[in-house]
Amino acid sequence: MDIGAAAGLGDDVGAGTEAAVPRAFARFYADQVTSTLAVVLALRGHRVGAEDVVQEAFLRAHDRWEQVGRMDRPDLWVQRVALNLATSQLRRLGAEARAVTRLAGRRHEPVTEAFGHEQPFWDAVRRLPAKQARVVALRYAGDLPVAEIAEVVGSAEGTVKAQLHTARQRLAVLLQDEEGGR
């Protein structure tokens, strides 16, 4: 996912033309794309869908780079946009899946990308309420501290702590149920 190469810019990044991606944005993208993808992938469960969401978030940052680049933490802005896009996409996909299920008269089993030994955990995370799933993804896939999670999701730190606490309790139950069902 090299935005410079995708835009056909090669080594001319920041060459001063309007079409060129500023060097600062290219560096920002290179530094942040992996961690942003990890968070969205944890929430989405599908690499292709997650990559699309992340690309859209970075495209929006690029389009607004003059403002976003001046922010204290543009990475948190991009993560917020990516999470909002992922949440919207999940809602839309969920509605589509329910419609297909009703029409087909059978349950829809989502296809998930393997996370290796972490698959049951991330499957359980995706069963949490959306706000809890977001803070868990930011904490464990994004490795963000509570203060930065609060900034990304637009909540108070205490709210994030409470959501993480509740999510951990729910995950313990979900994972124990999963373990007992084997």
Rank of each mutant, 00 (worst) to 15 (best):
L9G: 08
D31N: 15
G180E: 13
I3A: 13
D2S: 09
A147D: 11
P110W: 08
P74A: 13
L43K: 09
V40G: 02
Q176I: 10
L93V: 10
A19D: 14
H117R: 15
D12L: 00
A99D: 10
D75T: 01
T17V: 04
T87F: 08
E51K: 14
T101R: 11
E96H: 10
T34S: 15
P74W: 13
A57L: 05
A19T: 11
L138I: 07
L171M: 05
W65G: 07
F58V: 07
E51F: 02
A97I: 05
T166N: 10
A7Q: 04
A20Q: 13
A150T: 02
G94F: 03
V54H: 09
G69A: 04
Y29L: 02
A20P: 03
G45I: 06
A42M: 04
L9R: 13
R170M: 10
A61L: 01
V136R: 07
A30I: 07
L41I: 04
G45D: 01
R106I: 03
L103D: 07
R98T: 09
P120Q: 07
Q67F: 12
S88P: 04
A30P: 00
T34L: 12
R107I: 04
L128Q: 10
Q79V: 02
E151M: 12
L144T: 09
L41G: 01
V160Y: 00
G116Y: 07
G49C: 05
Q169F: 08
V153H: 02
D75N: 14
V111I: 13
D52M: 09
A95H: 13
F121Q: 04
T87Q: 11
R91S: 01
A50N: 03
A137S: 15
A50I: 05
V146K: 08
A19L: 15
V33K: 14
D72E: 13
F121R: 06
D123F: 01
A30F: 03
A20T: 10
A20C: 07
A95E: 14
L175K: 07
L171N: 06
G16N: 07
R134I: 10
E96K: 12
V39Y: 06
